[in-house]
Simulated scan of single mutants.
Amino acid sequence: MSVSTAEPSRDTASLRGTRRSGRRLPRRAAASRRSFAATMAALDAAATAGAQVSVHVTDLDRGTTVVTGDAHLTLPVAGIGVVPLLIDVAAQVDAGTLDPFELIERTRVAPVTVGGLWHRLAAPALPVCDLAVLAAAAGDAAAANALLARVGVEAVRARIEQVGLERTALMDGFRDRRGPDHAPHVAVATAEELAALFGDLVNSRVVSPAVSAQVAEWLSLNHDLALTAAATGLDPFAHDDDRHGLLFLNKTGRSDGVRAEAGVIAGPRAGVSYAMIVCFDDLSIAHRLRAHDAFRVFGLDLMEYVY
């Protein structure tokens, strides 16, 4: 895997409001925290075992690449495909063409139980705004499918093109079983584009500041902190950790043989947008844990960079 790295910025100006403190690490302490060598070793081990791996990290203050490896590869990203859907929902709400309180019946789409909560709730219908929260926070397949049925896959694809994503595609909704007549994946993307997208969200450059803020707010509720985000120490059900000056939002994607995560993490020393994708032969729990370990090592390297 081709890899390049860069040092973190020593100039970390305030990022997106009051989340970043003015504290700086001493130069000697900072010097020991510039390497993503552990991440690259973990990814090399996964690749040696037959996985396809891709990673990209961008420094938000400087706009420079911190580390990248095969970030141009278009790979399946499963539930991260919800992000462009949420962008289109937020954009339509902001434009007044979609009522956030419009009720959508669960029976509007085929039953799906691969993830989420709505299929276990008694409520037969929920408003658009609540479905967006479920899709972002709980990876709710039924909620995402209902939103996709309401706005239309062509509208989401047009939105993807509008925001400048060239190698990202939402191909299909979620399914309990994916047959030969279905698209092979929910979504595909590159690590480079996903990292750029999340950076643009927190910098208010996706469609409009209002749309960016709404999508970032939904994504900040994500409960899945088991991969890269495990290193943050955040409560999965309450991320708002102002006490430690950490800004964090993410979206994960999980399916058979696919683990992916993209997000933003900003601490007192630096802020980054990141994405990592690992596609592997899901032959045993050992194969799966090897992929998960790579994400957790990556999370530790990210935390060392921003702190």
Rank of each mutant, 00 (worst) to 15 (best):
Y274V: 00
G257W: 01
V3T: 13
L246G: 04
R243D: 11
R10A: 15
T48N: 08
V77K: 00
T232W: 03
G50W: 00
L197A: 12
A149T: 08
T107P: 05
G17F: 08
S273Q: 02
D282K: 09
A135W: 03
L103V: 14
L43D: 10
D99M: 07
I160Q: 03
T48S: 11
L148G: 07
F101S: 11
A91E: 12
L75I: 02
I80K: 00
D293W: 07
A286W: 00
I160G: 01
G271Y: 01
G257K: 03
A262I: 02
D88F: 00
E102D: 13
D242C: 12
R24D: 11
V53Y: 00
A42H: 01
H287E: 10
N250C: 11
H292Y: 11
I265K: 06
T168G: 04
L25E: 02
A141V: 04
G50D: 02
E166I: 10
S204E: 12
A45Y: 07
T74Y: 01
D94H: 09
A49L: 02
E7V: 12
V57F: 05
A216C: 05
A13T: 13
L300F: 13
R10E: 12
V114D: 09
D70Y: 03
R62N: 06
F237R: 15
P180H: 10
V163S: 01
S212M: 09
V57C: 05
H223P: 07
A213W: 04
A260G: 13
A216H: 06
W218A: 13
T168V: 03
V67T: 15
R62K: 12
D256T: 12
D140L: 02
R167A: 15
A195P: 04
G17H: 06
A46G: 09
D88C: 11
V258Q: 03
A238K: 06
V89W: 01
I277D: 03
N222L: 08
D11F: 06
I104T: 03
A29H: 07
P180K: 13
N250L: 14
H182I: 04
A136G: 08
R10D: 14
M40D: 14
N222D: 10
A229T: 15
S4C: 13
E166R: 15
S4M: 10
A146H: 04
V57L: 07
D200P: 04
L289S: 12
H244E: 11
A31R: 06
A183C: 05
V151Q: 08
G69Q: 06
D235M: 08
E261P: 00
R243P: 08
